[in-house]
């Protein structure tokens, strides 16, 4: 369990993290969301013991990160932002080095390295220096380094930033496979990632906690929750009457009048009503679909609120 209590970090007068309290249980995959400069990386740097908090405390599996940092760091696997590695070493040498520093020897070490090499498909580039690797491979070497000692706590700072869709999926699968009994904290500003891998989404802005819920609950806050999208074959003036349906909050029309979004009142499911309306009026449509909500809209609303 990670317990963060009243955590603050000031750089001069600037509060990068401001009175943040959070508790993460084993088994949780926590998505750490926020605009750039919100304090995500700073918080992660404090959890991993790189930066000292200005105020507040962090305990990782019962070890205070300031008083008992080495014990806590043994339990943590950390991928810093940008996945730094030694450019002059090959992944094989680099992973061996990390494994040795983590205290593995002999066969145990060889097995650990072989395991992560396989998990992250690094076989092809094992003997090429890291500086010559593509961004995707560098990121994977960074991930391999982080999961090498099978840590109970995994902290990943933007693990999929700069990866192509296939690589993103691979990383997400990897996270999904290992997180049964572990604590995983992922920072990202890619919203799709949250619904894809996280069981909990925490949004921070200006160093403060703005929202703490499941990705599903975030979607429920969207004004597009259960909204119905219509693509019309031709323009139709009857559409304005959609507004008069009881559970429809509002409609949004595109400029050419061919695309319509009907917003539902909170908690209402309007699809059957819209469907009926279209049949009645005999409106020709190309497609109709229901939205589960838009995370980016919720994200913007939450992070832009001025306190």
């Amino acid at each position: 369990m990670i317990i963060i209590e009243h955590l603050s970090k000031w750089f001069g007068d600037f509060a990068a993290v401001d009175d943040l309290s959070l508790c993460v249980q084993p088994g949780e995959v926590l998505g750490f969301l926020g605009p750039n400069g919100a304090g995500k990386s700073t918080t992660m740097k404090m959890i991993t013991g790189y930066l000292a908090p200005s105020a507040g405390s962090i305990s990782v599996m019962g070890h205070d990160i300031e008083k008992d940092s080495l014990a806590a760091q043994r339990l943590i696997g950390y991928l810093p932002e940008g996945a730094p590695g030694y450019g002059d070493m090959t992944p094989a040498q680099f992973l061996r080095f990390i494994a040795e520093i983590r205290g593995f020897r002999g066969r145990d070490l060889t097995e650990k390295v072989a395991y992560v090499v396989e998990q992250l498909s690094l076989g092809k580039v094992l003997h090429q220096t890291i500086e010559t690797l593509s961004k995707g491979f560098k990121r994977r070497v960074g991930l391999a380094q982080a999961i090498l000692h099978d840590p109970q706590v995994l902290i990943l700072d933007e693990p999929t930033d700069g990866l192509d869709p296939n690589q993103k999926q691979q990383v997400r699968d990897l996270i999904g496979n290992l997180s049964k009994e572990k604590i995983v904290i992922i920072s990202t500003h890619i919203l799709e990632e949250v619904s894809a891998v996280c069981s909990r989404a925490v949004i921070i802005a200006d160093g403060r906690l703005r929202s703490d819920s499941t990705p599903e609950q975030l979607l429920q806050q969207s004004r597009y929750r259960n909204a119905v999208n219509l693509h019309l074959t031709e323009q139709n003036t009857d559409l304005q009457q959609l507004k008069e349906i009881a559970d429809v909050e509002d409609i949004e029309l595109s400029e050419n009048g061919l695309r319509v979004v009907a917003l539902a009142k909170q908690g209402q499911f309007i699809y059957p009503l819209i469907d009926e309306f279209i049949r009645q009026k005999n409106i020709a449509i190309d497609s109709i679909s229901v939205e589960s909500g838009r995370l980016d809209e919720v994200f913007q609303r939450i992070t832009r609120e001025v306190v």
């Binding site: 760091q73 950390y78 940008g82 730094p84 030694y86 450019g87 520093i101 983590r102």
Partner: peptide
Amino acid sequence: KSGTVELIMTLPVP
């Protein structure tokens, strides 16, 4: 410069 300082400072070595 390369950012590895963050990596090595978070390994369990004083």
